[in-house]
Design a protein around this nucleic acid. Structure first.
Length: 480
RNA sequence: GUCCCCGUCGUCUAGCCCGGCCUAGGACAUCGCCCUUUCACGGCGGUAACACGGGUUCAAAUCCCGUCGGGGACGCCA
């Protein structure tokens, strides 16, 4: 019956009770990578059945996060709150087939049962399972509130072959009679996922390992509903540096926070992909989207949890910034300029790109471009006090820079080679080391102690600005 | 507490399935040196791991058992 090979259908199914966090992003990424690798379909489904905690803002937040990450989907977003009829019908069917029953227990009764179960080291079966069907029907018709629970077999075990973890087995006696439909008619997670995954014809369920122990419950539903099982793949969790689950106290957990910190999306993707997955050639780590997609396989996924290593992310980011042509970087960088209040006086695209190229080897993130580029685009910049103390505290150097400005002013040629020649000749003449003048001049021209090669800076700035800034040596309250 | 999963440098990992080629490889981080015009980059080198204990075997990071450690799940949350 399964003779026709079907293209894979996967889904990312976040619940909008928070922003897209790192773990969710990694799950989304792996689903995306797999779907793209096999030319399958990726579906976005919003699991908003927790009416209290789900908000439309969070839906937007998640969508923004995915878009920033560059993860696109083929169908959806579907919203579970708009599919309630489907879940209720399934619950009804399960009731009719004897796989489920009404539960009239109060919260207190349930707590008591649970406490007893824990004390005895076993799962207690719900007392209402014993309530006879006709009586239960009568009671609900009389208006008594009732949840619908699944009747889990008391013996035997449920086994499955996880694509990551291999064979996993749970004793049915360990599984409680979980709720399918709450007394207010809203489905729980177990019911809605399974019904949707069936209805949306999912072939693969790739999700966090925190769902491993939910899997047998959901398998029981597939079976009771008489539907074929998808492939399950559970992803190891992402941990903080202290090896506990990644949370707010570990710093940024929202994906958007990384955008704000100046991380390049492709670098983030690369980093995330390697958190728990290894390409066949593990020595290659810088992998662009196409390579990631080509190489991605479920079988190469790690079983053990992985610690989120911020310094490695930063390394990826640096690598991507350096390798990306200025033309592609520019739109991202311009946002940072805007935030920093820089209005570039150089309007030519070429000039901007040249500056970005000049400076980008020193950038660790996109935000760095605001400081790094400032002096090239505006005269409104401060001299970094630390740089001043380090390179300009010598009065003699400052005086010489003023004289040097005059040399540049009268220069007929202004190239990297010629400006260097002028400076070195000048230093030789004065009997001082060129290095001291170079460092001092760099601070005058850029305001920074950390900047590119001086003569590249000069030619980028142009003769006029170079001269003007060097002349200012004594005007800038340097000795204060 | 019960059940499930995991356990190689600080971190991500290769090797484990099919024991010997492992004196355990790579990357990030870290330390040192070189380059040098600051800071990066780059080059070279260093420190650093098979959780522990028992087996099995001529031989174990690799197979088996146990212990310990970590994580997850036990909701009318997802």
């Amino acid at each position: 019956m399964n003779s026709t090979p079907t293209t894979p259908r996967l889904r990312f199914a976040p619940s909008p009770t928070g922003y897209l966090h790192v773990g969710g992003a990694r799950t989304a990424l792996f689903n995306w990578l797999y779907a793209r690798h096999y030319s399958g379909t990726l579906i976005l489904r919003i699991e908003d059945t927790d009416l209290e905690r789900s908000t439309p803002e969070m839906v937007d937040g998640i969508l923004d996060g995915l878009r920033w990450l560059g993860i696109d989907w083929d169908e959806g977003p579907y919203f579970q709150t708009q599919r309630m009829a489907l879940y209720r019908a399934a619950a009804g069917a399960l009731l009719n087939s004897g796989h489920a029953y009404y539960c009239f227990c109060t919260r207190e009764q349930l707590e008591k049962q649970r406490a007893q179960g824990v004390a005895e080291g076993r799962v207690t079966r719900d007392a209402c399972r014993a309530v006879n069907r006709d009586e239960a029907k009568k009671r609900t018709e009389a208006g008594e509130g009732a949840a619908i629970r699944f009747a889990v077999p008391e013996s035997g075990s449920t086994t499955f072959e996880d694509a990551v973890f291999g064979r996993v087995e749970f004793a049915n006696s360990e599984i409680e009679d979980f709720v399918l439909l709450r007394s207010d008619g809203v489905p729980t997670y177990h019911l809605s996922v399974v019904v949707d995954d069936i209805d949306m014809r999912m072939t693969h369920v790739v999700r966090g390992a925190d769902h491993l122990s939910n899997t047998p419950k959901q398998m029981m539903l597939y079976e009771a509903l008489g539907k074929p099982m998808p492939v399950f793949a559970h992803l190891p969790l992402i941990l903080g540096p202290d090896k506990t689950r990644l949370s707010k106290r570990h710093g940024a957990t929202s994906v958007i926070a990384y955008k704000e910190e100046g991380i390049v999306p492709e670098a983030f993707r690369n980093f995330l992909a390697l958190l728990g997955w290894t390409p066949p050639d593990s020595s290659r780590e810088i992998l662009h989207d196409k390579e990631l997609i080509d190489l991605f396989e479920l079988s190469q996924i790690q079983k053990s949890n992985a610690v989120f290593d911020r310094s490695k992310l930063d390394w990826f980011n640096t690598e991507y910034i350096r390798a990306t042509p200025a033309a592609l970087l520019l739109p991202l960088i311009e946002e940072e300029w805007k935030k920093a209040g820089i209005i570039p006086f150089q309007t030519s695209r070429e000039a901007m790109e040249a500056t970005v190229d000049l400076v980008k080897a020193r950038a660790r993130n996109l935000k760095d471009f605001a400081t790094l580029c400032r002096a090239y685009f505006t005269d409104m910049f401060e001299i970094d006090p630390a740089a001043r103390d380090k390179f300009l505290k010598d009065d003699a150097v400052r005086a010489m820079l003023g004289d040097l400005a005059l040399r540049y002013q009268s220069a007929t040629e202004f190239t990297e080679a010629s400006t260097e020649q002028v400076l070195r000749d000048f230093a030789a003449e004065k009997g001082v080391k060129a290095g001291g003048l170079i460092n001092g001049a760099r601070v005058m021209l850029t305001g920074q102690g950390v900047a590119p090669s001086l003569f590249a800076v000069m030619t980028n700035l142009g003769q006029e600005r170079t001269v003007a800034r060097l002349k200012n040596t004594n005007d800038r309250r340097l000795s204060s």
